[in-house]
Design a protein around this nucleic acid. Structure first.
Lengths: 128, 128
DNA sequence: AAAATCATGTAAGAAAATCTAACATCAGTT
DNA sequence: AACTGATGTTAGATTTTCTTACATGATTTT
């Protein structure tokens, strides 16, 4: 379950998702408009994406490159989607609870200082 | 290496880090000012945090709650820090190369639609 | 006790990131 | 030639984040 929490938690702004997927903001918003993804929103209406969203976008891109169109991808999605008790599911966890849950977990997995503080040499070059 | 990439890649805006750590923006910026963390910056000068940063912040918070002060935590950090060849490391990969690397990896681990659209899996490696 | 220090709060003004809406483009289709 | 689908571009508004400066309460130092 914590795994689901991690992957569904909205933590990424659109700028990062653009980098991760190599899609433009326009494309990402369009796919949302076309109901291929449903990113969360901040109180201020900014989109915030989960890791699942990123996965989905990468697949969408892949399918498009293979020649499928948006309608086809949506159909695929609808069809293959396991009809789970999503909407019926009584939302038992509040956002705050989920966050706290994740925090607790990270805390327990916290590693010794040397590691935690280890230099960010690599991908910090994504920005400069 | 990819693991290090994932944990050091700056992907989180300060608002999300606040939620994940239960710290205020003021606190987070202060700890940076005090050299306890060094989050990356976007071209527009916005802080962007890695998972390692979040780990570090959680530890900092913990130490503070245990009565340590910032100077003590910094000392601890300096002392325990593994003196690696960080700055000496020849930067062989361009930004574009790194992005492409990460994307490729995500792509290859992408799973069939049904899975990708509903459940976690691959990207949860971003955590832990 | 007064002064200094530490960790944090708060406010102001500026800049960056994101939003929606509208119109443009360009390759395929009809 | 007109239409459609996917994406580009631009404009104006709103949100988010930034830095700087000053305020505050709790300790520590003088």
């Amino acid at each position: 379950m914590t795994n689901r929490v991690r992957r569904t938690m909205p933590i990424l702004p659109i700028s990062i998702v653009m980098q991760l997927t190599d899609l433009t903001a326009r494309q990402i918003r369009y796919y949302e408009e076309q109901k291929l993804i449903s990113p969360a929103r901040t109180n201020g209406n900014k989109r915030m994406f989960s890791l699942n969203d990123v996965d989905a976008l990468i697949e969408i891109k892949d399918y498009l490159e293979q020649g499928l169109n948006v309608a086809g991808i949506r159909k695929l999605h609808e069809t293959k989607e396991t009809p789970r008790n999503d909407q019926a599911e009584p939302k038992t966890l509040s956002d705050a609870e989920l966050r706290s849950l994740l925090r607790e977990e990270m805390k327990h997995q916290a590693r010794p200082f040397d590691k935690a503080f280890q230099r960010q040499g690599d991908l910090s070059r994504f920005f400069k």
